[in-house]
Simulated scan of single mutants.
Amino acid sequence: MDDQRWLRWTQRIQALAQAGLTYTENGYDVERYEELREISIAMMQELSGAPYPVVKELFASETGYPTPKVDVRGVVFEEGRILLVKEKSDGKWTLPGGWADIGYTPKETAVKEIREEAGLDVRADRLLAVLDKKCHPHPPESYYIYKIFIRCEQTGGRPEAGLETSDVAYFAEDALPELSLNRTTESQIRLMFEYLRDPNKAVTLD
């Protein structure tokens, strides 16, 4: 079975059910959309192996019109090497970043995440890429996600792990550590190095 294809179908069914529940005023349609949502939860449970309450809370608990979640990653270079942080959750490495917070611009989110996860003060100065997670070799994910990559320049601080990270280091392109693939892929890291070599490279959009 093509898990990625089934995942996309499941996400789409959930999104249609959520939109229907948001806008319908017909009681019979409410029942139909609720049934579609239950089907999407059952499909996601089958794909993930997670317990029903966990799937329902993470995958089908939102209200309102369904939109992608946004993940913001900060890109910092030093002497030809890229800044990565080691995640406590899986012991693997990633570009610093995380979910975009309400009330913060994308640039402010990148600055905040780098400070919290890597101990550095930075200035966000350029959008590099906006990627759709489904187009890249990440593991299957229940959320539909856009990933924003922002180039940042260090202005102060020193490398220091945070609450969610256990280590901070710079890596050369030919010496990358084991990556946290749910967050960052090798091809995405190599794309960031393309921007280091060519500062005039156009923004990458999926």
Rank of each mutant, 00 (worst) to 15 (best):
G156L: 07
T105R: 08
A124W: 01
M192K: 02
A15G: 12
K88M: 11
T67K: 13
T94A: 15
E153N: 15
K147E: 11
I39F: 13
P51V: 12
N200S: 15
V55L: 08
T10M: 00
E38L: 08
G74I: 03
A169I: 03
Q154H: 09
A161V: 03
S89Y: 12
S166L: 07
E194A: 06
D2V: 09
V70H: 09
L36Q: 10
G162Q: 06
R190Q: 10
A129G: 03
P51C: 11
Y23F: 13
N182C: 11
G49N: 07
R115F: 11
K69A: 12
P177H: 12
S89T: 14
T24A: 09
R115D: 08
L16V: 15
K201W: 01
L205N: 09
G97K: 02
E141R: 10
G97E: 01
Q45T: 12
P51I: 10
G64P: 06
V76S: 02
T67E: 12
D2G: 08
A124Q: 02
R12P: 05
P53A: 09
S48C: 08
R37V: 06
R37S: 07
I82L: 00
I82M: 02
Q18D: 06
I41F: 08
I39K: 12
T184R: 05
P66N: 09
D174F: 09
L127D: 02
R12V: 08
L47Y: 07
L16I: 14
D198Q: 01
V130W: 06
T185Q: 03
L120W: 03
L131F: 07
L191R: 03
Y146M: 13
W6R: 15
V130M: 07
A110G: 03
E62I: 04
T155G: 03
A172M: 10
L58F: 11
L127E: 00
V54Y: 14
P53Q: 10
L21H: 02
A129P: 00
I189T: 03
Y104K: 15
A161G: 08
P199E: 00
Y143D: 14
D101G: 00
W93C: 04
K107T: 13
P51D: 14
H136C: 00
Y33R: 02
D174M: 09
D167C: 10
K133N: 11
T94G: 00
N200Q: 14
F193R: 02
D3M: 14
L21E: 05
I41N: 05
L128P: 00
Y65R: 10
Q45V: 00
E160T: 13
L83D: 01
N200L: 14
T204D: 06
A124I: 00
D132V: 15
S89H: 14
A169D: 09
H138W: 04
A100H: 13
T109F: 00
E113G: 04
P51R: 11
Y28C: 11
N182T: 14
V111D: 04
L131C: 06
P139G: 07
P66W: 07
R73M: 09
D198W: 02
L181W: 01
E57R: 14
T155C: 05
A50P: 01
Y146W: 12
L131T: 06
H138L: 06
N26P: 00
